[in-house]
Amino acid sequence: MLSKEELLQYSRHIILPEIDIEGQEAIKDSHVLIIGLGGLGSPAALYLVAAGVGELTVVDDDLVESSNLQRQIIHRIETIGSPKTESAKASLESLSPTIKVNLLTQKASPEVLNKLDSERFTLVLDCTDNFTSRFLINEWSVSNQIPLVSATAVAFSAQLAVFNQKLQHACYQCLYSNMNLPEGNCADQGILSPVVGTMGTLQATEALKIILGLNKADTSFLLTYDSLDTAFQRFNIMKDPSCSVCS
């Protein structure tokens, strides 16, 4: 149930007929798993907490570095050298003192993910920067039937993908299993900082739509973004009948 303070704080949500008080209570009752607290996870976490999500579990084993601050907006100069999980928690709690933030200052691995109580999570955001982690997170989300919102960005381009495993849609493995995987990351190719901000914000948007039951897509989809041309393209992802993960 929402308090008087929460009714005021989230009033701009509540006046939306698609959300109303019941929707805001659903947001408050949700528990989102965020893996990666870099350029994608930073805006995603901030917007989810600002929107009223009641509980986050965040996973990252890195320390804050000065080069992170160009795009990882959840961290601050004074937290350089600190674990990203602790730095993020401080920012999130300053935004919403009632938020519950669980920290896993570890690298996402099969052992770490399999120890999680999957039934506690509403969905998972993949905000990592490598294919090994993305495939691992995808396999975990499929096996536990947890919706997955994944994003990636490098240079001036980015991608967002949404997979609703509860509806047995196509998975991340269906998208990339038969393709040559693109190489490179922000460390070697660079990144325009607002590009990851755009995708992290879209991840938060899609997460809230899933929580609210507003995600009406009847299939998994991929959204590509070219910031130089200010162009978005959306593609449906078809389930691979021979997928080693979801089939």
Results as ranks from 00 to 15, higher is better:
L2C: 02
K4R: 12
E6I: 02
L7F: 11
L7T: 02
R12S: 03
E18K: 06
E25T: 09
K28E: 04
D29W: 06
D29T: 12
D29Q: 15
H31V: 11
V32H: 00
L33C: 00
I35Q: 10
G36W: 02
G41A: 01
S42Y: 01
A44P: 06
L46N: 15
L48M: 10
L48S: 02
G54S: 08
L56K: 00
D60A: 01
D62Q: 00
V64M: 01
E65F: 01
S67I: 08
R71H: 11
I73W: 09
I74T: 06
I74H: 01
H75E: 10
R76C: 01
R76P: 02
E78N: 13
P83Q: 12
K84E: 00
S91P: 05
L95S: 14
S96V: 01
K100E: 12
Q106V: 07
S109E: 09
P110Q: 01
P110F: 12
N114P: 04
D117N: 14
F121V: 10
F121K: 00
T122A: 01
L123Q: 01
L123P: 03
L125P: 01
T128V: 06
N130W: 14
I137P: 11
S141I: 12
V142R: 05
I146A: 00
A161L: 07
A161Q: 07
V162P: 11
Q168R: 12
C171T: 10
C171F: 08
Y172C: 02
Q173M: 13
L175W: 09
Y176T: 13
N178Y: 12
L181K: 10
G184L: 08
C186Q: 08
Q189S: 09
G190R: 07
S193C: 05
T198H: 08
G200H: 04
L202K: 06
A204Y: 14
A204R: 14
G213T: 13
L214Q: 12
K216S: 03
A217Q: 14
A217F: 11
T219D: 11
S220R: 09
S227R: 10
I237G: 05
S242W: 05
C243K: 12
V245W: 12
V245C: 14
S247L: 09
